[in-house]
């Protein structure tokens, strides 16, 4: 994502995360291994949630998301990924709006 934007401008944000997205389904059959996928991806801007994705097992490993965001004022964009083990990964990027 860009570090700066003009007020009212729509910016494109793209994210990718390293995660195996284990569905638990193998050649041996369905649900033979514990599922371990990222089930939620959420983005907050200026303290308010602007995007939430309920991720299904059909999503490939190392999921990639791209979305648009309208810049309003300077503040943090907070990315959160939550997986089946309860692990929460949070990344924060500063957006400066001029």
């Amino acid at each position: 994502m860009p570090a700066t934007a003009q007020a009212g401008e729509t910016i494109k944000i793209r994210s990718a995360i390293q995660h195996p997205m284990i569905t638990g389904h193998t050649d041996a059959g369905p649900n033979v291994a514990p599922r371990k996928i990222i089930h939620t991806f959420a983005v907050a801007y200026l303290g308010a949630e602007v995007l939430r994705v309920d991720v299904a097992p059909g999503i490939a490993a190392n999921p990639f998301f791209a979305f648009n965001l309208r810049a309003r004022s300077s503040g943090d964009v907070v990315f959160t990924w939550i997986d089946d083990t309860g692990e929460v990964i949070v990344e924060t990027r500063q957006l400066t709006v001029t």
């Binding site: 793209r14 994210s15 990718a16 390293q18 490993a61 190392n62 990639f64």
Partner: peptide, 12 residues
Amino acid sequence: PIRNRGMLWVEQ
């Protein structure tokens, strides 16, 4: 570099 997932390992 964002869509090429191999870059995740490069960063690591």
